[in-house]
Simulated scan of single mutants.
Amino acid sequence: MPQTAILHINERKNVLNKRQKEFNQLSEKIEELDRLIPELENAYDQMIQRIPTDLDPLIKEYQEYRAEIVHIMDRTYSADLFRKIYQDKLAYLITESAYDLIAHYGFDDLKPVFNKYSQVDIETLLDEERAKAEKITDPSFLIESEAVKDPVQYESFHDLPEEEQQRIKTEQREERLNSRIQEAKQLAEQQKTTKSVRTVYMDLVKTFHPDLEKDEAEKLRKTDIMQQITQAYQENNLLQLLKLQIQLDRIDQDQLENLSKNQLNYYNKVLKQQVEELEIVKENIQKRISSVCGLPFQHANSLTTVIVKFNTNVNELKAEIKNIRNVIKNWKTPSQLKAYLKTYQIPGQSFLEDDED
């Protein structure tokens, strides 16, 4: 069954009122989200499919070059070619790079190199990192963290003056009453909006339920229609139900334009809920995209934008590989490595100028 165009209340002789304009705006937003969400899911799937072939091999190659640099610095340190200030810098760079490569990329062959320059054994550090990760993901730890608040001193209720006790009891009764009133209002509104959807649904069901149809071809057609109707109802998709009503000649454009004030109010409530739910779905897929390609999730608004960012990441990594190859070539010459160390400063340490050639 072909899909209808965006469902709109048309403006004819009279200017649309506020509720009709809101209906149109919500309709447009839902159509936009219905188009965008599958597009973003497609973009995410494309990236996931390309990671093993386009990205992972480059990451592996880059990390292997980093490991080669660690070995170059280790050999240079062992050759004892530089003064202590440069040796200290080499030791720091070796331990920093080696730890990252061991902990996050599985380069266990670097463990002896790390231990040569570190006062703490690599296994001890890895055990500490694993323990921290387990603690952070432990639900009891999260609950405990959220519960840590400044201590509040409470005075015993029965020690308060009688007048103060009565005031507190009155406030508590009012709070309970107000809470029940709000719950009743919310339930009533929910029942009304649900009834709005059900009214449209039942109109369609009465006409297109296939069970009483004797003609087999018509029965098949109605079965297909009922599947669409049922799916839209289960998803609380009022917009799709209204589109089906028009599509199947259950209402015409004039009836849509002459919806009562109350009908429009409740239709708009349901459509707002639909927009909110779709926005959550969109944001979730945007955040999944962000975790893969680093694009700020708010900017993931089209397949093209996402794939361009992924391609940029791939090209940037290729450029990094080209650069690190040059570093390896240069640092194999001790004087070139020394020139770098002369300008390098260990984080947290004051810069010590060395004029030695």
Rank of each mutant, 00 (worst) to 15 (best):
151 P>R: 10
128 E>M: 04
91 A>K: 11
68 E>S: 08
124 T>E: 15
73 M>T: 04
96 E>M: 14
86 Y>H: 01
122 I>K: 11
100 D>L: 14
87 Q>S: 06
88 D>K: 14
121 D>V: 07
94 I>F: 00
132 K>Q: 13
145 S>C: 10
119 Q>I: 09
139 P>K: 02
86 Y>C: 04
108 D>R: 06
72 I>S: 03
156 S>L: 14
142 L>V: 14
123 E>R: 15
85 I>N: 00
95 T>P: 02
108 D>G: 04
101 L>N: 11
96 E>S: 15
121 D>M: 02
149 K>G: 08
158 H>M: 11
116 K>I: 04
70 V>R: 05
159 D>W: 05
87 Q>D: 05
115 N>S: 00
79 A>I: 05
93 L>Y: 03
102 I>H: 06
129 E>T: 12
153 Q>Y: 14
111 K>G: 03
125 L>H: 03
106 G>T: 07
73 M>P: 05
81 L>T: 05
110 L>N: 00
73 M>S: 04
135 K>Y: 02
92 Y>H: 15
149 K>N: 10
136 I>Q: 08
159 D>E: 14
114 F>T: 09
118 S>N: 07
137 T>Y: 12
113 V>E: 04
98 A>E: 01
88 D>I: 09
88 D>T: 13
153 Q>T: 15
152 V>P: 07
113 V>M: 04
90 L>F: 01
105 Y>D: 14
135 K>Q: 09
114 F>E: 09
133 A>N: 11
110 L>Q: 01
105 Y>V: 08
123 E>L: 15
120 V>M: 10
113 V>Q: 02
101 L>Q: 09
144 E>C: 06
100 D>W: 13
104 H>R: 13
118 S>V: 08
91 A>Q: 07
72 I>C: 07
147 A>W: 06
67 A>M: 01
83 R>Y: 09
131 A>G: 12
107 F>W: 06
76 T>A: 06
127 D>F: 11
149 K>V: 13
97 S>L: 15
79 A>H: 10
86 Y>I: 01
120 V>C: 06
122 I>R: 11
147 A>H: 07
74 D>K: 10
159 D>N: 12
95 T>L: 03
108 D>K: 05
146 E>C: 12
92 Y>K: 03
126 L>C: 05
148 V>W: 08
124 T>M: 08
93 L>P: 03
118 S>A: 10
76 T>C: 03
149 K>Q: 12
149 K>I: 09
120 V>K: 13
98 A>G: 00
131 A>M: 13
103 A>P: 02
85 I>T: 08
133 A>Q: 12
151 P>T: 09
151 P>G: 08
86 Y>W: 01
149 K>W: 04
131 A>W: 13
68 E>Q: 05
105 Y>Q: 13
93 L>I: 08
88 D>H: 12
92 Y>C: 03
152 V>A: 08
89 K>D: 00
98 A>N: 00
141 F>I: 10
87 Q>G: 06
100 D>C: 09
144 E>I: 07
103 A>Q: 04
131 A>P: 10
127 D>Q: 15
78 S>E: 11
114 F>S: 05
90 L>K: 00
125 L>G: 00
146 E>M: 15
153 Q>V: 15
84 K>W: 10
89 K>G: 00
138 D>L: 02
119 Q>C: 07
120 V>Y: 09
116 K>A: 05
94 I>N: 00
85 I>Y: 04
76 T>P: 04
140 S>V: 11
105 Y>N: 14
68 E>N: 07
109 D>P: 06
